[in-house]
Design a binder for these strands. Structure first.
Lengths: 295, 295
DNA sequence: CTTAATTGTTCAAATTATTTGAACATAACA
DNA sequence: TGTTATGTTCAAATAATTTGAACAATTAAG
């Protein structure tokens, strides 16, 4: 590969000239004299063999080629800045990117508050949040597709190298649409009575493992969806019945859109975990874990 | 914005050291002397305040920070190269480089004649020919890795923005090595009789799409190769049987190395296309298309 | 185990590249 | 029509990079 015709210095100069409107102002910003900029621009034009500025009188306007070079060049400059920050970050033991898997059953707001606090202190670390469902979270962790999972359901996979801490206890209740016939029954309902109704189920996002789903009502017809949000919408739309975490649907219950069904035997609360690999020694991950475990 | 700590020069040096394995070899590649590289690397490390190379004896291995800098830095370098080419294209309408993907099934000689004529008139335009196989050609075009594909097989992807013209019709024949037992049979052979023989197949070079391969003989064992030339060699070596374009193997047939098998039902001829994106307005590309479509 | 060849670094000297400031021409502006 | 500010040019000054020789360390070969 031959040496690049474009230099970062030159892009910086182009940017300054365009934003400040003149060579003189740009020179001041860059702590140089105008003739130095003249020299750099001429060199760049010569190397590319392209006219970048149309000299209209003494005002320099960018040609279409110059416009393109500048707008793309700014992206390169910003990439270089990010890169140098990330490199320094890594050198100090901090990772450039932390990947999270969040189960859709979690209340994401709380998590985001914690993440926001973390990002405020660590500007150059990128966070990549992906939503997974049930075993999908564990699998993403085991396959090293993510560094941290939040809200993964019990049981914790008994695989060495995974540290999990309980972060929430989930109380799921059976809910139906307000027009559903089950909402008319006032006595506690036995599980057997539910077998005739269509059950809205979140499909496990695990790719390799055999997916299972908790809370499934035996012997009834199933309607599979890909997240808790869609499940909620489906039940509100009257498509079927299903268990949902109480805290997530408080609004819908109060507004009367969803009706909580009293059961003869309540479902035991479900434990949710935050988990990571102990081999992952990243300082950023550890700090994030500390912050999030205080929520 | 302060002047960037990273320079493109330095990234280039990093890349050379890593790929060539030593300062000495890298210096040779960059037309410099080793001490110059030493100077540049030290400067970069000082500016970033980061150790990039761990000196193990005299072999330099990248630290994690160095690895990240290099892998991201390579993307920046490639972006800068693309940018300079795009800028030149916009400025004079003629692109500095045209990238072709040629299916290995094409007779490259004819193409090269046309390209030679084009280059005679346009000395300053570089041509970059890469060989692809089947869907690999289409994918390279769709992903903008090339500007023009030659000899891509039907069907033309029904994606808007692609213009394709038929440039050849390919008559494939089934051939075997002269010592192969199939060559002894004089009556036309039915397809079912072929199922016992090992079939030499060119592997699709598509990276993302689900690869398919035409001409595969159902129910037989496969031997995958990466180009038509290797396929021909494999069949001559007696590894298996396979379909090959008649015009490409005329010599081998006349010399008796390959025997054409008569089939009860001949394979229908296959259409080959030349294709490009209509968004690509480069004058060079258009002229090249004009020249090549007259072949 | 010893020798020979190669490698990366250091350093002062040599070479390039960039910056500077004065001089100038030209455009903007009152 | 002056007046001011601007961009360019040029030689000189300065800064940056490159060079090659010397050296120490490492590997390869005998």
């Amino acid at each position: 590969m031959k040496t690049p015709a474009i230099s970062l210095e030159a892009l910086l100069v182009l940017d300054a000239i365009e934003t400040r409107g003149s060579y003189a102002a740009a020179a001041e910003q860059l702590n140089k004299v105008p003739s130095a900029l003249s020299y750099i621009v001429q060199k760049l034009e010569e190397q590319l063999n392209v006219t970048l500025f149309q000299r209209q009188g003494r005002r320099a306007v960018l040609t279409p080629a110059g416009k393109h070079l500048l707008s793309e060049g700014r992206k390169v400059l910003s990439a270089i800045n990010t890169l140098s920050e990330q490199t320094q970050t890594i050198a100090n033991g901090w990772e450039p990117k932390i990947r999270l898997a969040c189960d859709s059953i979690m209340d994401i707001k709380t998590i985001f508050n914690g993440i926001e606090g973390f990002l405020a202190a660590h500007h150059s670390i990128e966070i990549d949040v992906q939503e997974q469902v049930m075993n999908g979270t564990w699998e993403a962790l085991i396959d090293d597709r993510v560094d941290l999972v939040i809200g993964a359901p019990a049981p914790v996979p008994n695989q060495k190298g995974i540290r999990a801490i309980k972060i929430a206890q989930l109380n799921s209740v059976l809910v139906v649409n307000k027009a559903h016939e089950l909402s008319l029954i006032t006595q506690p309902i036995k599980l057997e009575q539910l077998s005739g109704y269509r059950n809205v189920v979140v499909h496990d996002s695990a790719q390799h493992q055999i997916p299972w789903s908790v809370n499934m009502i035996a012997g009834s017809q199933h309607f599979f969806v890909s997240s808790i949000a869609i499940k909620t919408a489906a039940i509100i739309a009257g498509i079927g019945i299903g268990y949902l975490p109480k805290n997530l649907i408080q609004d819908h219950i109060e507004s009367g859109e969803l009706i909580v069904i009293k059961l003869a035997e309540e479902r035991p609360p479900q434990d949710l975990f935050m988990a990571w690999k102990i081999t992952n020694k990243g300082k950023g991950l550890n700090k994030l874990i500390t912050i999030l475990s205080r929520c």
